[in-house]
Protein backbone atom coordinates (compact mmCIF):
# COMPACT_ATOMS: atom_id res chain seq x y z
CA UNK A 1 0.00 0.00 0.00
CA UNK A 2 2.87 2.33 0.85
CA UNK A 3 6.32 1.97 -0.65
CA UNK A 4 9.11 4.16 0.58
CA UNK A 5 12.02 3.79 -1.80
CA UNK A 6 15.50 5.00 -1.04
CA UNK A 7 14.29 8.18 0.60
CA UNK A 8 16.89 10.71 1.60
CA UNK A 9 16.12 13.95 3.35
CA UNK A 10 18.78 16.57 3.91
CA UNK A 11 17.91 19.81 5.63
CA UNK A 12 19.55 22.86 4.19
CA UNK A 13 21.41 24.91 6.68
CA UNK A 14 24.88 25.60 7.92
CA UNK A 15 25.47 21.93 8.72
CA UNK A 16 23.21 20.32 6.11
CA UNK A 17 21.78 17.74 8.51
CA UNK A 18 20.83 14.44 6.91
CA UNK A 19 17.61 13.35 8.62
CA UNK A 20 16.96 10.29 6.44
CA UNK A 21 19.67 8.29 4.75
CA UNK A 22 18.22 5.96 2.16
CA UNK A 23 15.12 4.54 3.84
CA UNK A 24 13.34 1.60 2.20
CA UNK A 25 10.05 0.44 3.67
CA UNK A 26 7.21 -1.62 2.29
CA UNK A 27 3.94 -1.33 4.12
CA UNK A 28 1.50 -4.05 2.98
CA UNK A 29 -2.18 -3.20 2.57
CA UNK A 30 -4.18 -3.84 5.72
CA UNK A 31 -1.21 -3.95 8.05
CA UNK A 32 -0.37 -1.85 11.07
CA UNK A 33 3.22 -0.82 10.59
CA UNK A 34 5.16 0.84 13.37
CA UNK A 35 8.29 2.89 12.99
CA UNK A 36 10.06 2.87 16.31
CA UNK A 37 12.85 5.24 17.19
CA UNK A 38 14.28 7.65 19.71
CA UNK A 39 13.62 11.33 19.29
CA UNK A 40 15.95 12.66 16.64
CA UNK A 41 16.04 9.35 14.78
CA UNK A 42 14.13 10.89 11.88
CA UNK A 43 10.74 9.24 12.33
CA UNK A 44 8.84 12.54 12.28
CA UNK A 45 10.57 13.48 9.05
CA UNK A 46 9.83 10.05 7.64
CA UNK A 47 6.07 10.16 8.27
CA UNK A 48 5.91 13.74 6.94
CA UNK A 49 7.61 12.53 3.78
CA UNK A 50 4.82 10.00 3.20
CA UNK A 51 2.22 12.68 2.47
CA UNK A 52 4.89 15.12 1.33
CA UNK A 53 4.41 17.63 4.14
CA UNK A 54 8.17 17.36 3.77
CA UNK A 55 9.52 16.74 0.29
CA UNK A 56 12.21 14.06 0.23
CA UNK A 57 15.53 15.26 -1.13
CA UNK A 58 15.58 12.10 -3.25
CA UNK A 59 13.74 8.81 -3.51
CA UNK A 60 10.10 7.97 -4.16
CA UNK A 61 6.98 7.64 -2.09
CA UNK A 62 4.40 5.33 -3.64
CA UNK A 63 0.98 5.29 -2.02
CA UNK A 64 -1.68 3.07 -3.53
CA UNK A 65 0.28 2.76 -6.77
CA UNK A 66 0.90 6.48 -7.22
CA UNK A 67 4.33 8.08 -6.89
CA UNK A 68 3.54 11.19 -4.86
CA UNK A 69 6.86 12.87 -5.64
CA UNK A 70 5.91 13.04 -9.33
CA UNK A 71 2.53 14.75 -8.87
CA UNK A 72 1.56 18.33 -9.66
CA UNK A 73 0.45 20.45 -6.68
CA UNK A 74 -3.24 19.90 -7.52
CA UNK A 75 -2.78 16.15 -7.96
CA UNK A 76 -0.85 16.03 -4.69
CA UNK A 77 -3.71 17.75 -2.85
CA UNK A 78 -6.14 15.21 -4.30
CA UNK A 79 -3.84 12.37 -3.21
CA UNK A 80 -3.56 13.82 0.30
CA UNK A 81 -7.35 13.81 0.58
CA UNK A 82 -7.12 10.01 0.42
CA UNK A 83 -4.51 9.77 3.18
CA UNK A 84 -5.69 10.38 6.73
CA UNK A 85 -3.37 11.73 9.39
CA UNK A 86 -3.55 12.04 13.15
CA UNK A 87 -1.18 14.03 15.33
CA UNK A 88 0.41 14.02 18.76
CA UNK A 89 -1.22 17.34 19.65
CA UNK A 90 -4.48 16.52 17.84
CA UNK A 91 -4.43 19.74 15.78
CA UNK A 92 -8.16 20.36 16.01
CA UNK A 93 -9.55 23.76 15.07
CA UNK A 94 -10.53 25.58 18.26
CA UNK A 95 -13.00 27.75 16.35
CA UNK A 96 -15.04 24.73 15.28
CA UNK A 97 -17.22 22.29 17.17
CA UNK A 98 -16.44 18.59 17.14
CA UNK A 99 -18.94 18.02 14.31
CA UNK A 100 -17.53 20.93 12.31
CA UNK A 101 -13.99 19.64 12.79
CA UNK A 102 -14.98 16.24 11.45
CA UNK A 103 -16.82 17.94 8.58
CA UNK A 104 -13.72 19.91 7.59
CA UNK A 105 -12.18 17.40 5.14
CA UNK A 106 -15.65 16.78 3.70
CA UNK A 107 -15.94 20.49 2.91
CA UNK A 108 -12.58 20.32 1.19
CA UNK A 109 -13.60 17.44 -1.06
CA UNK A 110 -16.96 19.10 -1.77
CA UNK A 111 -19.58 17.04 0.07
CA UNK A 112 -23.04 18.62 0.02
CA UNK A 113 -24.24 19.78 3.48
CA UNK A 114 -26.81 17.01 3.89
CA UNK A 115 -24.34 14.27 2.94
CA UNK A 116 -21.79 15.92 5.22
CA UNK A 117 -24.13 15.82 8.22
CA UNK A 118 -24.92 12.16 7.66
CA UNK A 119 -21.25 11.23 7.29
CA UNK A 120 -20.26 13.22 10.40
CA UNK A 121 -22.91 11.46 12.47
CA UNK A 122 -21.65 8.10 11.20
CA UNK A 123 -18.04 8.97 12.06
CA UNK A 124 -18.82 10.29 15.53
CA UNK A 125 -20.71 7.09 16.19
CA UNK A 126 -17.68 5.11 14.97
CA UNK A 127 -15.39 6.77 17.52
CA UNK A 128 -18.02 6.86 20.27
CA UNK A 129 -18.46 10.62 20.54
CA UNK A 130 -21.99 11.15 19.23
CA UNK A 131 -22.94 13.03 22.39
CA UNK A 132 -20.08 15.53 21.94
CA UNK A 133 -20.98 16.73 18.44
CA UNK A 134 -21.69 20.29 19.54
CA UNK A 135 -18.82 20.58 22.05
CA UNK A 136 -15.69 22.59 21.31
CA UNK A 137 -12.28 20.89 21.48
CA UNK A 138 -11.33 22.87 24.59
CA UNK A 139 -14.14 21.09 26.44
CA UNK A 140 -12.75 17.62 25.66
CA UNK A 141 -10.17 15.39 27.34
CA UNK A 142 -7.02 14.37 25.47
CA UNK A 143 -8.41 10.97 24.57
CA UNK A 144 -11.64 12.49 23.28
CA UNK A 145 -9.67 15.01 21.21
CA UNK A 146 -7.73 12.18 19.59
CA UNK A 147 -10.98 10.38 18.83
CA UNK A 148 -12.16 13.51 17.04
CA UNK A 149 -8.81 13.59 15.23
CA UNK A 150 -9.35 9.98 14.14
CA UNK A 151 -12.92 10.67 12.99
CA UNK A 152 -11.66 13.65 11.00
CA UNK A 153 -8.81 11.65 9.47
CA UNK A 154 -11.23 8.94 8.34
CA UNK A 155 -13.93 11.30 7.04
CA UNK A 156 -12.90 11.11 3.40
CA UNK A 157 -12.63 7.31 3.57
CA UNK A 158 -8.88 7.05 3.14
CA UNK A 159 -7.22 3.70 2.64
CA UNK A 160 -4.20 4.83 4.62
CA UNK A 161 -3.89 6.41 8.04
CA UNK A 162 -0.68 8.08 9.18
CA UNK A 163 -0.25 8.39 12.92
CA UNK A 164 2.33 10.84 14.16
CA UNK A 165 2.96 9.92 17.82
CA UNK A 166 -0.82 9.93 18.25
CA UNK A 167 -0.73 8.56 21.79
CA UNK A 168 2.40 10.23 23.13
CA UNK A 169 0.48 13.01 24.86
CA UNK A 170 -1.98 10.61 26.47
CA UNK A 171 -1.91 8.69 29.75
CA UNK A 172 -1.38 4.89 29.58
CA UNK A 173 -5.04 3.98 29.98
CA UNK A 174 -6.22 6.41 27.31
CA UNK A 175 -3.38 5.27 25.07
CA UNK A 176 -4.66 1.73 25.35
CA UNK A 177 -8.20 2.69 24.40
CA UNK A 178 -7.02 4.75 21.41
CA UNK A 179 -4.84 1.88 20.23
CA UNK A 180 -7.77 -0.51 20.58
CA UNK A 181 -9.83 1.84 18.45
CA UNK A 182 -7.11 1.92 15.78
CA UNK A 183 -6.85 -1.85 15.84
CA UNK A 184 -10.60 -2.26 15.40
CA UNK A 185 -10.65 0.29 12.54
CA UNK A 186 -7.84 -1.64 10.90
CA UNK A 187 -9.86 -4.84 11.16
CA UNK A 188 -13.27 -3.44 10.27
CA UNK A 189 -12.30 -1.08 7.46
CA UNK A 190 -9.17 -2.81 6.21
CA UNK A 191 -7.35 0.43 6.97
CA UNK A 192 -3.58 0.41 6.47
CA UNK A 193 -1.93 2.23 9.36
CA UNK A 194 1.59 3.63 9.41
CA UNK A 195 2.49 4.94 12.83
CA UNK A 196 5.58 6.38 14.33
CA UNK A 197 6.27 6.13 18.02
CA UNK A 198 9.01 6.08 20.59
CA UNK A 199 6.96 3.80 22.82
CA UNK A 200 7.64 0.11 22.67
CA UNK A 201 4.25 -0.51 24.27
CA UNK A 202 2.52 0.85 21.16
CA UNK A 203 4.39 -1.57 18.90
CA UNK A 204 3.69 -4.36 21.33
CA UNK A 205 -0.02 -3.63 21.51
CA UNK A 206 -1.02 -3.15 17.89
CA UNK A 207 1.74 -3.43 15.30
CA UNK A 208 1.99 -6.35 12.87
CA UNK A 209 5.25 -5.09 11.48
CA UNK A 210 7.90 -2.79 12.75
CA UNK A 211 10.94 -0.92 11.51
CA UNK A 212 13.51 0.47 13.89
CA UNK A 213 14.96 3.78 12.85
CA UNK A 214 18.30 5.01 14.16
CA UNK A 215 20.05 8.14 12.95
CA UNK A 216 17.97 8.26 9.79
CA UNK A 217 18.52 4.62 8.87
CA UNK A 218 16.35 1.54 9.20
CA UNK A 219 18.43 -0.83 11.28
CA UNK A 220 15.86 -3.61 11.52
CA UNK A 221 12.46 -4.39 10.08
CA UNK A 222 10.07 -7.26 9.81
CA UNK A 223 7.06 -8.90 11.40
CA UNK A 224 6.88 -8.15 15.11
CA UNK A 225 6.35 -11.81 15.99
CA UNK A 226 9.33 -12.92 13.90
CA UNK A 227 11.67 -10.27 15.25
CA UNK A 228 10.71 -11.11 18.80
CA UNK A 229 11.43 -14.76 18.15
CA UNK A 230 15.02 -13.83 17.41
CA UNK A 231 16.59 -13.31 20.79
CA UNK A 232 19.35 -11.17 19.26
CA UNK A 233 17.05 -8.81 17.37
CA UNK A 234 16.96 -5.25 18.61
CA UNK A 235 13.24 -5.50 19.15
CA UNK A 236 13.55 -8.59 21.33
CA UNK A 237 16.40 -7.05 23.24
CA UNK A 238 14.41 -3.91 23.82
CA UNK A 239 11.36 -5.81 25.02
CA UNK A 240 13.13 -8.53 26.96
CA UNK A 241 15.76 -7.31 29.36
CA UNK A 242 19.01 -9.21 28.85
CA UNK A 243 19.43 -12.02 31.31
CA UNK A 244 22.41 -11.87 33.62
CA UNK A 245 25.17 -14.32 32.81
CA UNK A 246 24.95 -17.30 35.07
CA UNK A 247 27.71 -19.72 35.77
CA UNK A 248 26.39 -23.20 35.28
CA UNK A 249 27.05 -25.93 37.76
CA UNK A 250 29.41 -28.69 36.59
CA UNK A 251 27.72 -30.82 33.95
CA UNK A 252 24.85 -28.38 33.51
CA UNK A 253 24.11 -26.10 30.58
CA UNK A 254 22.61 -22.62 30.76
CA UNK A 255 20.37 -21.71 27.82
CA UNK A 256 17.99 -18.99 26.80
CA UNK A 257 14.75 -20.34 25.36
CA UNK A 258 12.46 -18.14 23.29
CA UNK A 259 8.91 -19.35 22.82
CA UNK A 260 6.66 -17.95 20.12
CA UNK A 261 3.48 -18.99 18.39
CA UNK A 262 2.41 -22.56 19.09
CA UNK A 263 5.52 -23.43 21.12
CA UNK A 264 4.36 -20.97 23.75
CA UNK A 265 1.21 -23.03 24.15
CA UNK A 266 3.00 -26.39 24.67
CA UNK A 267 4.16 -27.75 28.00
CA UNK A 268 7.68 -28.27 26.60
CA UNK A 269 9.60 -28.18 29.86
CA UNK A 270 7.68 -31.00 31.41
CA UNK A 271 8.17 -32.95 28.17
CA UNK A 272 11.91 -32.51 28.64
CA UNK A 273 11.70 -33.99 32.07
CA UNK A 274 9.64 -36.92 30.93
CA UNK A 275 11.29 -37.79 27.63
CA UNK A 276 14.92 -36.94 28.32
CA UNK A 277 15.15 -37.11 32.09
CA UNK A 278 16.27 -33.51 32.14
CA UNK A 279 16.02 -31.33 35.22
CA UNK A 280 15.25 -27.79 34.21
CA UNK A 281 15.90 -25.04 36.69
CA UNK A 282 14.29 -21.76 35.65
CA UNK A 283 16.68 -18.90 36.43
CA UNK A 284 14.80 -15.97 34.93
CA UNK A 285 11.89 -15.40 32.61
CA UNK A 286 9.53 -13.00 30.86
CA UNK A 287 6.27 -13.67 29.16
CA UNK A 288 4.73 -10.94 27.02
CA UNK A 289 1.49 -10.66 25.15
CA UNK A 290 2.17 -9.21 21.74
CA UNK A 291 -0.89 -8.51 19.66
CA UNK A 292 -2.89 -11.68 20.11
CA UNK A 293 -0.03 -14.08 20.81
CA UNK A 294 2.21 -14.84 23.70
CA UNK A 295 5.96 -14.66 23.51
CA UNK A 296 8.21 -15.75 26.30
CA UNK A 297 11.86 -15.97 27.15
CA UNK A 298 13.25 -18.24 29.79
CA UNK A 299 16.76 -18.62 31.04
CA UNK A 300 17.12 -22.17 32.22
CA UNK A 301 19.79 -24.40 33.64
CA UNK A 302 19.49 -27.89 32.14
CA UNK A 303 20.93 -30.91 33.88
CA UNK A 304 20.96 -34.50 32.73
CA UNK A 305 22.62 -36.91 30.31
CA UNK A 306 20.62 -36.16 27.19
CA UNK A 307 21.05 -32.42 26.96
CA UNK A 308 22.00 -32.49 23.26
CA UNK A 309 18.91 -34.47 22.35
CA UNK A 310 16.75 -32.31 24.57
CA UNK A 311 17.93 -29.16 22.81
CA UNK A 312 17.25 -30.55 19.36
CA UNK A 313 13.81 -31.65 20.58
CA UNK A 314 13.15 -28.08 21.75
CA UNK A 315 14.25 -26.67 18.40
CA UNK A 316 11.97 -29.19 16.72
CA UNK A 317 9.11 -27.77 18.75
CA UNK A 318 9.77 -24.29 17.40
CA UNK A 319 11.60 -23.04 20.48
CA UNK A 320 14.64 -20.92 19.82
CA UNK A 321 17.53 -22.12 21.96
CA UNK A 322 20.71 -20.23 22.63
CA UNK A 323 23.24 -22.00 24.75
CA UNK A 324 25.39 -19.83 26.94
CA UNK A 325 29.03 -20.44 26.18
Amino acid sequence: MIDIQNVHKVYNGPNGVAALKGVHLHIPAGSIFGVLGQSGAGKSTLIRCVNLLERPTSGSIIVDGQDLTQLSPAQLRAARQRIGMIFQHFNLLNSRTVAQNVAFPLEIIGYKPAARRARVAELLDLVGLSDKAEAYPSQLSGGQKQRVGIARALAAEPKVLLSDEATSALDPQTTRSILELLRSLNERLGLTILLITHEMSVVRQICDRVAILEHGEVVEQGKVSELLAQANSRLAQAIFPKFDAYSARPGAVVATLTFTGSSAEQPVLSQLARQFMIDANVLAGNIESIGNQRIGQLQVELMGDQIEQAISYLRGQGVRVEVQA
Binding site: L53, R80, Q81, F87, L93, I108
Partner: peptide, 24 residues
Protein backbone atom coordinates in the same frame (compact mmCIF):
# COMPACT_ATOMS: atom_id res chain seq x y z
CA UNK B 1 0.15 22.14 13.59
CA UNK B 2 -3.28 23.31 12.40
CA UNK B 3 -1.82 24.47 9.12
CA UNK B 4 0.02 21.20 8.77
CA UNK B 5 -3.21 19.28 9.45
CA UNK B 6 -5.02 21.33 6.81
CA UNK B 7 -2.24 20.65 4.30
CA UNK B 8 -2.39 16.95 5.13
CA UNK B 9 -6.12 17.03 4.33
CA UNK B 10 -5.35 18.44 0.89
CA UNK B 11 -6.34 22.08 1.46
CA UNK B 12 -5.09 24.65 -1.02
CA UNK B 13 -3.64 28.00 0.06
CA UNK B 14 -6.95 29.82 -0.20
CA UNK B 15 -8.75 27.20 1.90
CA UNK B 16 -6.03 27.39 4.55
CA UNK B 17 -6.43 31.18 4.76
CA UNK B 18 -10.24 31.20 4.76
CA UNK B 19 -10.93 28.07 6.79
CA UNK B 20 -7.99 27.95 9.19
CA UNK B 21 -5.94 31.13 9.56
CA UNK B 22 -8.79 33.66 9.72
CA UNK B 23 -11.31 31.74 11.88
CA UNK B 24 -8.61 30.61 14.31
Amino acid sequence: GLIEAAQAMGCNLWQIIIKVLLPE
